[in-house]
């Protein structure tokens, strides 16, 4: 059987994206919990969370970039 490298890469990236989507959903859940606690919107705890949201977005962007490379 011949390996289709693009397809293998696509499956790998799909799994990565899946993982990051789950992580994103967990972050959203954490955010909602914090919002329920009526914490000051500029509290340091949000800095930490914002950073994690940003990290997550960066990682998703990197995966999407690779997907686009496959497409092109």
């Amino acid at each position: 059987m011949k390996i289709n490298l693009n397809q293998t890469k696509l499956v790998g990236l799909t799994m990565d994206l899946d993982l990051k989507t789950k992580e994103y959903k967990l972050l959203c859940k954490e955010l909602e919990e914090l919002k329920d606690q009526k914490i000051d919107p500029n509290d340091i705890i949000f800095v930490d969370l914002a950073q994690r949201f940003l990290d997550n977005q960066e990682e998703i962007k990197a995966i999407v970039k690779q997907l686009k490379e496959i497409k092109d």
Partner: peptide, 28 residues
């Protein structure tokens, strides 16, 4: 506010995820 920034990042991520789903569908 930091909270609003998070909401913005969140909405950007939502949009990227939506696009990526379309992209994946196309690729598959």
């Amino acid at each position: 506010t930091i909270l609003e920034s998070i909401e913005q990042i969140k909405s950007e991520t939502e949009s990227i995820l939506k696009d990526s789903k379309t992209l994946l569908d196309e690729l598959y």
